[in-house]
């Protein structure tokens, strides 16, 4: 009744623009769309993190950070008597840190130097070529990198799965990220700063080491931390290069474990399934921490 009253006396043509092409309506639809999609995204993240915490928290204890995983029999016994699985993932934690450490030692100097080269010679053909190669490298599937490193390092150098091989594979994956972030953060430095240093009679390499790098330090750190968090979860290339190790290993020529490798092993052992969640929780927490750290460094500089 009411509605007919409001509409009465108005022509259809007067109403149409308001309903269908009015700016307000479009704005509102757009807003509703944004809200729906962001809620979807947020709930996805909450679901992932939530299920990981719910399923993983009770395994996280002192042993988790200090002991290697149990064998499948021990795990089965614990499971049958309703206890938490004994042992932990210390071999994976130390292995991941070792691999990432060596990979960083390889990738950071190379990546930063190439980034500096690209920044300094940005308009040269050769620089464009390197930039293209970097993009290609970034697109190579990690399993392919694993295969190649298997052929180069596992077969030729360490004659077996090794920390070195795994680190080289991870380093190759870090390289394009570090090159790009180095170049981008150097581009943010105003030219005037470089000129100021040069006008003080500073030799070129000292301008790089003492002005350019410190001035872009937060950008460099952010790029490095993001590269590290990207490779922390890599599994496929590690299967082909470091294999895994039931115990802690510090020998660079021998196989080593890593948290994502352990997750894969736990997945394949029905008795160990509970450890998947705690390990995933740990890995995710670590990556999250690195992300927060890099955001904090970036914000602090401003």
């Amino acid at each position: 009744m009411n509605q007919t009253n409001i509409l009465a006396g108005k022509k259809v043509t007067e109403l149409i623009p308001d309903l269908f092409s009015g700016r307000k309506l479009k704005d509102r639809l757009f807003l509703i769309g944004i809200v729906i999609f962001s809620l979807l995204t947020i709930s996805m993240v909450v679901l992932i993190i939530g299920s990981m915490i719910l399923k993983g928290y009770h395994q996280i204890n002192w042993a988790f950070f200090t002991q290697s995983p149990p064998d499948t029999f021990q795990a089965m016994m614990a499971k049958m008597s309703g206890k938490t699985i004994p042992g932990g993932i210390i071999n994976g934690i130390t292995g991941s840190l070792y691999l990432v450490g060596i990979a960083s030692l390889i990738a950071i100097p190379f990546g930063v130097l190439i980034g500096i080269y690209l920044y300094e010679n940005s308009k040269k053909k050769y620089a464009g070529f390197i930039r293209d190669i970097t993009d290609v490298l970034q697109g190579v599937p990690s399993i392919v990198i694993g295969l190649i490193v298997y052929l180069w390092v596992v077969v030729e150098i360490t004659h077996g799965y090794s920390v070195l091989a795994g680190s080289v594979a991870l380093a190759i994956m870090m390289l394009p990220l570090i090159i790009r972030s180095t170049e981008e953060s150097l581009k943010m430095i105003p030219d005037t700063l470089k000129e100021a240093a040069i006008a003080l009679g500073t030799p070129y390499y000292k301008v790089v080491m003492r002005v350019l790098i410190p001035s872009s330090f937060s950008g460099l750190m952010t790029g490095i931390l993001l590269a590290i968090s990207r490779i922390l979860g890599e599994t496929a290339p590690l299967m082909l290069t470091t294999l895994g190790n039931p115990a802690i290993n510090w020998n660079i020529a021998k196989p080593v474990s890593a948290v994502p490798l352990l997750i894969w092993q736990f997945y394949n052992d029905p008795n160990m399934v509970d450890l998947i969640w705690s390990s995933s929780l740990f890995l995710m927490g670590f990556v999250l921490l690195l992300n927060i750290l890099s955001k904090w460094i970036a914000a602090r500089q401003k």
């Binding site: 005037t192 100021a196 006008a199 009679g201 000292k206």
Partner: peptide, 30 residues
């Protein structure tokens, strides 16, 4: 460049250095 110094259109002190270090930046950088 140590004998002929230069000052630019826009002030360009080194943002990562203290005022003190900015003054002796020429010595520090070299």
């Amino acid at each position: 460049r140590r004998k002929i110094g230069m000052v630019f259109q826009r002030p360009n002190p080194f943002p990562t250095l203290s005022i003190y270090d900015n003054v002796i930046a020429g010595y520090k950088l070299n």
